[in-house]
């Protein structure tokens, strides 16, 4: 029997998400014949797994490839090598229509809530769309469900017929979270989801994510450059440098005894919180 680990995760044998040997090479320049002339390896042989109910933080500086990892996991980008297993299904083998159905299980909250919400869509459609797609929900049942979700993320439930530009940045990120929840996901990827927000909105959105994880036993992949934020929320941490996963450890262990030089550099750059410990 596998032993239960300290963060209280129940089932270690079948992780929610397995990323195996992911590599992504971008062609940045082509020659006269249209063949690649210059390449950039954004992600190189990255493997990790997300266990049921944990918050895994993927940390790295800008250009470390962390957003590319998110795009490879969600298949917004096709990886050149490796596979992605979500609930045991290999997403790299799925055809488009099958993938569309599977995508319900893993939702993403993007960094910039000003760009990730279609300015021409009303709230009821933005938030309700995953339910229309995956549950074939009738329009008349939609309003009540969307209201409940808005209430859950702390937005006034009378905003059904508003447009995104009528909300503040923090409110928009709540909208994006409500939309992700509408798919009833098992996993949420939060890609720098709070870094575009002011400090007080950051705290509120973080608390919201923590509460939702508790209530819905969500698994969360938290991608950020900010170790200060990570310390408050993460169970485990992976450190990404120049496209490679250089260190992975329990959160406390990583803060107390970083093994990799890059991790130490990152820790030194964390203001106050990291040093006082």
């Amino acid at each position: 029997m596998p032993e239960s680990d300290i963060s209280g995760v129940q089932d270690v044998t079948s992780p929610r998400v397995v990323a195996e040997n992911l590599t992504k090479v971008f062609v940045t320049k082509r020659n006269a014949f249209g063949l690649p002339a210059r390449r950039l390896t954004a992600v190189r042989g990255v493997s990790f797994e997300l266990r049921q109910g944990e918050i895994y933080a993927l940390v790295g500086g800008s250009g470390s490839g962390k957003s590319t990892v998110a795009r490879l996991l969600t298949r917004l980008e096709k990886s050149d090598t490796g596979r992605v297993l979500v609930n045991g299904t290999d997403w790299t083998l799925l055809r488009r229509s099958a993938l569309q159905k599977q995508r319900r299980a893993m939702q993403m909250v993007f960094q910039n809530p000003y760009a990730s919400l279609d300015p021409t869509s009303m709230v009821v459609h933005l938030v309700g769309e995953p339910m229309i797609i995956h549950e074939k929900l009738a329009r008349r049942d939609l309003d009540a469900r969307v209201r409940a979700l808005l209430d859950d993320v702390g937005l006034p439930s009378d905003s059904l017929h508003k447009y995104p530009h009528e909300f503040s940045g923090g409110q928009r990120q709540r909208l994006a979270i409500a939309r992700a929840l509408a798919a009833d996901p098992d996993v949420i990827i939060a890609d720098e989801a709070v870094s575009a927000l002011d400090v007080s909105s950051q705290a509120k959105v973080l608390n919201l994510l923590l509460r939702l994880r508790r209530e819905r036993s969500l698994t969360i992949l938290f991608i950020t450059h900010d170790l200060g934020v990570v310390r408050q929320v993460a169970d485990r941490i992976g450190v990404l440098s120049e496209g490679e996963l250089v260190e992975e450890a329990q959160a406390d262990a990583l803060f107390d005894e970083p093994t990799h030089e890059y991790t130490r550099t990152l820790l030194r750059s964390v203001p106050i919180m990291g040093r006082w410990r």
Partner: peptide, 12 residues
């Protein structure tokens, strides 16, 4: 980004 967002919720 909102097109990427639409893809991740499984929109065709």
């Amino acid at each position: 980004t909102f097109v990427d967002a639409a893809r991740t919720i499984g929109a065709s």
